[in-house]
Nucleic acid binder design. Structure first.
Lengths: 172, 172
DNA sequence: TATGAAAATTAGGTTAATCTAATAAAATAT
DNA sequence: ATATTTTATTAGATTAACCTAATTTTCATA
């Protein structure tokens, strides 16, 4: 019924406002414009829209605040953004700047189910005794040099040697 | 310089046309409209645009073909789509239908570097002796039931027992 | 406190992607 | 071969997100 229609552009603005809110205290049209890479009149228009949709509280020339709903939406997008960025930088080991840009573009299509699952996956890779940092290093090597059976075997032998202590670690 | 400007919507149409081309032989305005979830006049307009940009060959009421460039763009998008869908279904084990829908939305923001890396990652998870199907099963269990040290230990012991034969397997 | 600079808004326009209603062309069936 | 149905196109409108140029408001400071 009373579904507010929120475009992905609006989501981006809310995310930006949330960030600015944390960084500085006061949120200015000028700053939003800069962060979003648009001109100030574009921001003014969008603020009017967001206000009408009940996502921010804004009277022209006055301070701006996210409403409860606006915060919820902004934070949800931020979570997706962070999950994608983490995956790209911490798992795939891609360049952080690029990862951040891509996260911006990919975040909107992502369902909350996928968000949960991806977040858990990152956690799992990093904490599972079978994977963790050493496995990720080997992935990097695999990307750079392709499949090398002898390297793979060497890796497995090293891993096996650490297995006993590893199992003990888990016990604690 | 002579950069043809291609929007993500245009990319979607090219991907759809590519798919229709494989599925059936003849590509109809009606079918494109259905697949894209838009009305026929929208398609007619877009075909005019794609034609002007040199991405398809189309004379009204006649057969439609992708140009070399159009094919290249369509296939590139398709690769991203497939990579994301594979990650979501084969690694995260999410519902295929939802995965396909999400891939549609996320594919456009993805760089070719990320595509390459993600593809390799999927390969790596599936083929590395430390991970593979059994590890993915454990991930599912982890998602459903959270961290269970005793389960984890049990898993590690089973894994360790298979290690020797595994190392031999790699040798071949 | 008056004034010049900075910030924000308004006015008016553009583009991409969509729509509906009306018309035209092509395909099918009588 | 003609009439009917299906498919496609044209015409004209709408919406979201952007822009530039002009104006107004606010703020800092001389």
């Amino acid at each position: 019924m009373s579904e507010i229609q929120i475009t992905s552009t609006m989501e981006d603005y809310l995310e930006t406002i949330l960030q600015l809110n944390r960084e500085k205290g006061a949120i200015r049209v000028k700053n939003i414009a800069k962060k979003m890479g648009v001109k100030m009149p574009t921001v003014t228009n969008m603020l009017k829209t967001l206000n009408e949709k009940g996502l921010i509280d804004y009277e022209k020339h006055e301070y701006l605040e996210l409403t409860r709903t606006g915060q919820k939406v902004g934070k949800e997008i931020e979570r997706r953004h962070n999950a994608i960025r983490s995956f790209l930088t911490e798992i795939l080991k891609l360049d952080p700047v690029m990862a951040d840009e891509e996260a911006c573009k990919m975040e909107h299509g992502m369902s909350s189910e996928t968000l949960v699952r991806l977040t858990k996956f990152i956690e799992f890779v990093q904490s599972c005794p079978r994977t963790g940092a050493s496995w990720l290093n080997y992935f990097e090597d695999y990307c750079a040099n392709g499949i090398k059976p002898e390297k793979c075997e060497e890796h497995m032998k090293n891993f096996k040697m650490n297995c006993d202590s590893c199992i003990t670690d888990i016990k604690q």
